[in-house]
Simulated assay, not measured.
Amino acid sequence: MDDSTAFQGSIPEHYDSGLGPVLFRHYADVLGAAVAEGRPRRILETAAGTGISSAAIAARNRDAQLVITDLNAEMLELARQALPATARVEVADAQALPFPDASFDAVACQFGIMFVPELPRAFREARRVLVPHGVFHFSVWDSHAENRFAAIVDGLLAETFPDDPPPFYSVPFRLSDVQALRTLAQSTGFRSVRIDVVPHDAPVVSWEGFADGLIRGNPVADQLRRRSADLDAVVAEVARRLDAEYGAAPTTIPVQTIFYRATVR
């Protein structure tokens, strides 16, 4: 099976520049504001990526101690550039956090839990490092039906490689079952779970730039290279299909995520 968690090589730069302005910056602000509501003194972020959400958390929580983690060191190199010097940045696995019990008032994970192999372990770890009444803030993408741009890319990949389609675009959109995540949170030690469905009209300056991020800004790039695909041709076709679906850029596209706030018992 292809590794859908390896954001390495040139992927972080394409992720940050091609996907960040469209898919992540607005939701980073939403997350930063949500975390700030609890006035936490110590904040841990897991699966922080290139630091887009980290920067928003830092901006909204200026007096808090911030620890930023991700599995991919190359993603964190970009994150360091977006953060104040006081932030602690280190490689860590959300399923086995290297921190003592009750170390943080808040844990945040934006669009990361979809990539965790064993979700119960990650939830138990978040619970373990939180203080009593601490909050685990996490978000996931809603389904392909609510994020048509992803369905378009996934459909193209399936058409191009019908016998062995790259699997990446089935991963980030696989956790849209609200009840399943609520049940998991409550079964791993969280008392109450607030759930907010958050639609957004995401701005797209150019289809070519966004398409480049959708193909070269995540592990589907390596999945395609292993299939000897012409990445330039795939990017061009994604841009063409997005233009046909939504009209000429600049424009906006509808996207939708689900935000959770799980409070420790």
Rank of each mutant, 00 (worst) to 15 (best):
R80T: 14
E245N: 04
R182W: 09
A126L: 02
V220R: 13
A79F: 10
Q65N: 10
Y169E: 01
A145P: 06
G112W: 02
V89P: 00
L66K: 01
F24W: 09
D3K: 14
I68D: 04
A229K: 08
D2L: 08
D3P: 03
A73T: 15
T46N: 03
P219T: 09
A150T: 14
L76H: 09
L224P: 05
A64I: 02
F149H: 02
P12T: 04
A85I: 11
F173V: 04
L71T: 13
L44E: 03
D243F: 00
E208G: 03
A73H: 13
D105R: 04
P120K: 12
D201T: 05
A151M: 00
P40K: 12
Y260P: 01
V193G: 02
R227I: 11
T69N: 13
D63K: 15
G247D: 03
F190E: 00
H200V: 02
D163E: 12
L83E: 14
D93M: 08
S53E: 04
D93G: 04
A126S: 14
R240F: 07
S187V: 10
F210R: 00
R261Q: 15
L66M: 07
G189T: 13
Y27H: 13
V129N: 01
A202K: 09
A108M: 11
F149M: 05
P120C: 07
V89D: 06
D63I: 10
V129T: 02
Y260I: 00
E90V: 07
F7E: 11
A233I: 14
V204A: 07
D177I: 06
A85C: 06
Y15F: 10
S4Q: 09
A150N: 07
I258K: 04
V135Y: 07
L97A: 06
D2P: 11
I113W: 03
V153T: 08
Q81C: 12
V234R: 01
P219L: 08
D154W: 09
A244R: 13
P21G: 04
D163G: 07
G51L: 07
E77C: 13
A202D: 00
L175S: 06
F115D: 03
R25F: 04
R194F: 12
D163Q: 15
Y260H: 03
D70G: 12
